[in-house]
């Protein structure tokens, strides 16, 4: 019973929250609003998947939001200089991936702690984004095929949501069912032991941080396509939100450990909460306060769950 609560307690609380909003928050249950919630959750979930990979190898990535903003303005700039949208998309993904790779190299080759390395690259990315745009946003006319990446629909389901599900499913598969996933996890939990067992721990950390950047690149492309604008700090709000989703996720399914299923449900819960609070007419600042409470609370909960797990099994 205790184990069930530890594993599914947070997810069930999220479900309860969802039901409360369905019943009592005006307009929450409308199809248009639910779609908005799911879209918001999609961006969060993609960022969160990336952050989960980095955290799984015990590295922090505080740069993904800034790297995503840089990737976004790169996409905007290329599209506005009449480059093919395919190339613009590829460039957006490349900016994210290269940014992540750079983080990984700083951490593994030069041994800068990831907390510091990614704070630094975040600032560099932000500065570069302002340089590219001259401080203004790219708005105006966009290629229809490009916009369809986020807004196009298959059987009534937006591409954005389909892409998000694909990224979550692949990430879940890799972390749970492949040797690579086990090696990343072992690297994060016992680097010395993993290394002695022949696991290329540095390569795992490099991969974790690179995937975090790649996910940020993908999210950036979709953000631009969804909003039809690209601005130098457009992804900034996702930093703490996506981290909160991952930390909240660590209180679920595989308590105490970064896990994709948890990150996904965490992203859903945060998107539901943000939307529902607005519909309830809660003051704007409440969201920030809630976010802080969730970040600190999740870590507190998963730390204590972890301790109990060690002695109660």
């Amino acid at each position: 019973m205790k184990q069930l609560v530890a594993k599914y307690g947070t997810a069930l609380s999220g479900l309860a929250l969802f039901v409360v909003f369905l019943l009592f928050a005006r307009n929450f249950a409308s199809p248009a609003n639910l779609l908005t919630v799911l879209k918001q959750a999609s961006f969060l979930a993609i960022f969160a998947c990336g952050f989960t990979f980095a955290l799984l190898t015990s590295e922090l990535d505080l740069s993904f939001a800034s790297i995503a903003s840089l990737a976004a303005v790169m996409v905007g700039w290329l599209l506005h200089s009449d480059t093919s949208w395919l190339i613009a998309v590829a460039a957006g993904l490349a900016v994210g991936t290269i940014g992540g790779l750079l983080n990984g190299l700083l951490v593994t080759a030069i041994k800068v702690p990831s907390l510091i390395a990614t704070l630094g690259t975040a600032s560099i990315a932000t500065g570069t984004a302002f340089m590219v745009t001259g401080g203004v946003a790219f708005v105006g006319r966009w290629d229809a095929s490009f916009l369809a990446l986020a807004r196009g629909k298959v059987l009534g389901i937006p591409f954005l949501i389909i892409i998000m599900f694909a990224i979550v499913a692949i990430s879940w598969f890799v972390t749970r069912l492949t040797p690579l996933g086990v090696h990343m996890q072992a690297t994060g939990e016992a680097e010395g032991a993993a290394h002695r067992a022949g696991i290329a721990t540095k390569r795992m950390k490099l991969l974790g941080l690179t995937l975090s950047g790649a996910a940020a690149g993908a999210a950036a492309v979709l953000l631009v396509a969804n909003l039809s604008s690209a601005a130098p700090q457009m992804a900034g709000d996702f930093l703490l939100n996506a981290i909160a989703a991952v930390l909240l996720g660590m209180t679920m399914f595989d308590p105490g450990r970064p896990n994709i299923a948890g990150s996904f449900v965490g992203a859903l819960i945060l998107a539901i909460l943000a939307n529902g609070l607005v519909l309830f007419g809660a003051p704007y600042y409440l969201q920030d306060i809630m976010l802080g409470v969730i970040v600190i609370g999740s870590v507190g909960v998963s730390a204590s769950v972890l301790k109990k797990a060690a002695f109660s099994v």
């Binding site: 939990e189 016992a190 067992a197």
Partner: peptide, 23 residues
């Protein structure tokens, strides 16, 4: 080694097969 070189939070079978998983 004295510290056994195990990953404490990982499962028994994962530790026994660590680095040479069956796939």
């Amino acid at each position: 080694h004295q510290d056994l070189g195990l990953a404490p939070a990982m499962a028994i079978y994962q530790n026994i097969y660590l680095g040479s998983e069956l796939s």
